[in-house]
């Protein structure tokens, strides 16, 4: 309902740009997913606290375990999707990712050892994916930088290194660091 009202509002203003309604749509969807994810995490927390209350009843505990396992893996799927999504630059996408990841990490305190291992595995792939993204970004920057300014800047960086007579590995290290720093500032 909120979504329809927003779209109508955008339509009434008569924005001729095609991108805006799509952006609004995606934003509303992402915010809805975030709300649902928060509800889901609250449900998991409540399920665990009620599970501890009826700890004597083993069947109740095992009944609730499978849905929780499924819910957690679905939540981690959302986090994976957030990273690879083309909409990942949106603030709402970041907020969704933060809600999901923080919620799952918080809930993991109640998990069994097996579930904790699965969660650690999922988190590891997430961390590696994010690292790869950041490294790729830096590498493309370095490549871009080297392709365009290789001659001038290589001289600028190498000359002081040579004249100061650093050990070669330290010199390389400093050079790479400088390159990355300069690329980041560009």
């Amino acid at each position: 309902m909120c979504y329809a009202a927003l779209l109508e509002q955008v339509h009434k203003r008569g924005h001729p740009v095609d991108g805006l309604p799509l952006c609004v749509k995606v934003n509303v969807k992402l915010q809805t997913f975030q709300a649902v994810a928060i509800l889901e995490i609250n449900w998991i927390t409540q399920a665990f606290s009620s599970d501890e209350k009826v700890h004597a009843n083993q069947s109740a505990g095992s009944l609730i375990k499978d849905p929780i396992r499924e819910a957690l893996s679905l939540l981690m799927d959302i986090a994976d999707a957030c990273i690879t999504s083309p909409w990942r630059r949106l603030k709402s996408c970041e907020a969704l990712f933060e809600a999901v990841v923080t919620g799952v990490a918080r809930v993991s305190a109640y998990q069994s050892s097996q579930m904790l291992k699965i969660l650690l595995l999922r988190f590891k792939t997430l961390v590696l994916a994010i690292c790869a993204q950041v490294c790729d970004c830096k590498h493309t920057m370095v490549d871009f930088f080297l392709r365009n300014y290789s001659v001038q800047y290589a001289l600028v960086f190498q000359k002081p290194c040579r004249s100061l007579r650093f050990a070669s590995d330290i010199c390389q290290h400093v050079f790479v660091n400088l390159l990355v720093v300069v690329c980041c500032k560009l």
């Binding site: 970041e94 933060e98 990841v101 961390v127 994010i130 690292c131 993204q133 950041v134 970004c137």
Partner: peptide, 11 residues
């Protein structure tokens, strides 16, 4: 990436 800060906190 802002994701890196979020994931560090979550980890």
């Amino acid at each position: 990436s802002p994701f890196s800060e979020i994931i560090v906190k979550a980890v």
